[in-house]
């Protein structure tokens, strides 16, 4: 056991070292262009990380992979368009209303569609989330049409210079939001009674109910948090990604990959997975023929699964007999 842990530590350390070497090499060889890649990659990576956290919250409490996670972000983005771009509400008010609406939808869906499935296999629940994703996407298409929408950036100005790289001001909102979100989620699951109970509920429902957290409460809270987190993320990234009814699929796929790479169920893992994925993608797009850029994310996914299936920062799971 000890030997395997040590092995794992060496693996993760090695991966981290290799990644650092890649970053340094990029900076040395490409100079300010390399820095631009890394900064742009961090913006993209933070987007993936935010979505990945939503996957992690639901997975760590219920072991369900929520295929509708990307749709929460899509809904946040297009609602923001209606409230702020069309409805001319101030940004902060639009933000709050949009998050509240999507959170209510998330909690409502949990009660209506997920809770009745509590005694059934995880795969059945996953199929239900696929159904939810299809229905949410089609409803959004009915309401907002097929075109992407423009959401005004939170602050004005076209670009900000840091060192030799340029970023749109919205990138800094994304960084800041991702940082706050990961701290909050981490504290919730590791420092609060409810959060700890929820993790326990995923492992052993009976034991968790003894400390007062039923798997039913756990699932409701997880879905509420995931919807709030997903929609808020969708709003913050909306000025960059120009959301449309179909954006959720891409966000979900990349966010899921980031979550698996970092370790499904770990909030810091989601951030690490997202950033690694985003930066690697951008560097690849800069160096290799760009058509293969997306393959990097999925090669990394498979590689991580083969070498360290619990993800970079994940804990090895106990296998139930």
């Amino acid at each position: 056991m000890v030997g395997r842990d040590a092995d794992n530590r060496i693996l993760v350390g090695g991966a981290a070292a290799a990644f650092c070497v890649l970053i340094v090499a990029t900076l040395v060889v490409k100079g300010s262009t390399g820095l631009q890649w890394i900064m742009s990659g961090m913006t993209v990576g933070s987007i993936y990380a935010l979505i990945a956290m939503g996957f992690s919250v639901i997975y760590s409490s219920t072991h369900v992979i929520n295929f509708a996670q990307g749709e929460f972000s899509m809904l946040g983005g297009v609602l923001m368009f209606s409230l702020v771009t069309r409805g001319h509400l101030p940004t902060w008010l639009g933000f709050i209303i949009a998050v509240l609406i999507v959170t209510a939808i998330g909690a409502g869906l949990e009660r209506v569609a997920i809770r009745p499935m509590r005694n059934h296999s995880v795969i059945s629940v996953i199929i239900v989330t696929i159904g939810l994703a299809i229905a949410l996407r089609a409803t959004a298409k009915w309401i907002w049409g097929t075109d992407p929408v423009r959401v005004t950036a939170f602050s004005s100005g076209t670009r900000v210079k840091i060192l030799g790289a340029y970023l749109p001001p919205q990138s800094f909102w994304v960084f800041g939001f991702a940082a706050v979100a990961v701290v909050l989620v981490f504290l919730f699951f590791n420092r609060t009674l409810l959060g700890k109970g929820m993790r326990a509920a995923a492992m052993n429902p009976d034991a968790a109910s003894l400390v007062g957290v039923s798997s039913s409460t756990s699932s409701l809270v997880a879905w509420t948090i995931a919807a709030a987190l997903g929609s808020a993320a969708g709003i913050v990234i909306a000025p960059i990604i120009l959301p449309s009814f179909s954006s959720g699929a891409m966000l979900g796929l990349k966010g899921f990959s980031a979550a698996v790479v970092g370790g499904l169920g770990s909030a810091p893992g989601a951030v690490v997975g997202g950033l690694v994925l985003g930066v690697l993608e951008t560097i690849t797009a800069g160096v290799l023929p760009t058509g293969y850029k997306d393959a990097i994310a999925f090669l990394l996914l498979i590689l991580v699964l083969l070498v360290r299936p619990q993800g970079l920062l994940g804990r090895a799971e106990d296998v139930k007999v």
């Binding site: 569609a113 009745p116 499935m117 059934h120 296999s121 059945s124 199929i127 239900v128 696929i130 159904g131 939810l132 994703a133 299809i134 229905a135 949410l136 996407r137 089609a138 409803t139 298409k141 009915w142």
Partner: peptide, 20 residues
């Protein structure tokens, strides 16, 4: 595409619920 997919999604959920 609109109601078709909405209904498709809902039916999928309903079928899983009643015939898991």
């Amino acid at each position: 595409g609109n109601y078709q997919l909405i209904l498709y999604g809902i039916l999928l959920i309903v079928f899983m619920m009643f015939l898991p």
